[in-house]
Amino acid sequence: MDLWDFIVQRWDRLLPEAALHASAVIQCTIIAAVAGVALGVAVYRSPAGSALATALTSAILTVPSFALLGLLIPVLGLGVPPTVVALVLYALLPIVRNTIVGLSGVDSAITDAARGIGMNRLRVLTRVELRLAWPAILTGIRVSTQLLMGIAAIAAYAKGPGLGTEIFSGLARAGSANATNQALAGTLGIVVLALLVDGVFVLVGRLTVSRGIRD
């Protein structure tokens, strides 16, 4: 059976797996974005704090994903919990780093002006600084999503949801008729998902970046 026949025949299983894969990645990215931006906002004014946050999150990113997953299995069991924790941890660095870079890149004359027209700290942050830093933050979120697409595939080892299931099942059935088709469908499916989601980010950027700084 060639790949195309295989995909058509298994469509009713591949489609939900692709949907689960995308939804796991997107939900974990959202959690990481909220946590990462909060962390970035909390530390960006302190040089020592932002250095520490960057150092810690980049050390996490160095940890091999298969090893982190292995460490989480004895603690959290199998399935969704270790997948979510691993994905959220890996997504943090690009978001935290870009939040800090974006926020510290805001011209202090602009924040002074905002203070001068009577905005309080919170309003300066939400109406001025975060909006100016948003393109950088969005880039961080986009990088994280691409990263998670691949890591989510490894999470299938711990019975996590998604297209990685096809890859590991192909490996387990090496030599049988559809092993290669399974692994190929899983791998290509993830590439397609990654490209699709990347396209969505371009659209989100168009819609959410403040009109004044759009290029």
Partner: peptide, 17 residues
Amino acid sequence: VGQAAPAVGVLVLFFLW
């Protein structure tokens, strides 16, 4: 584009091929 492919997928496919 190649980088978007999951590492474990590339590894398994290479082995199967």
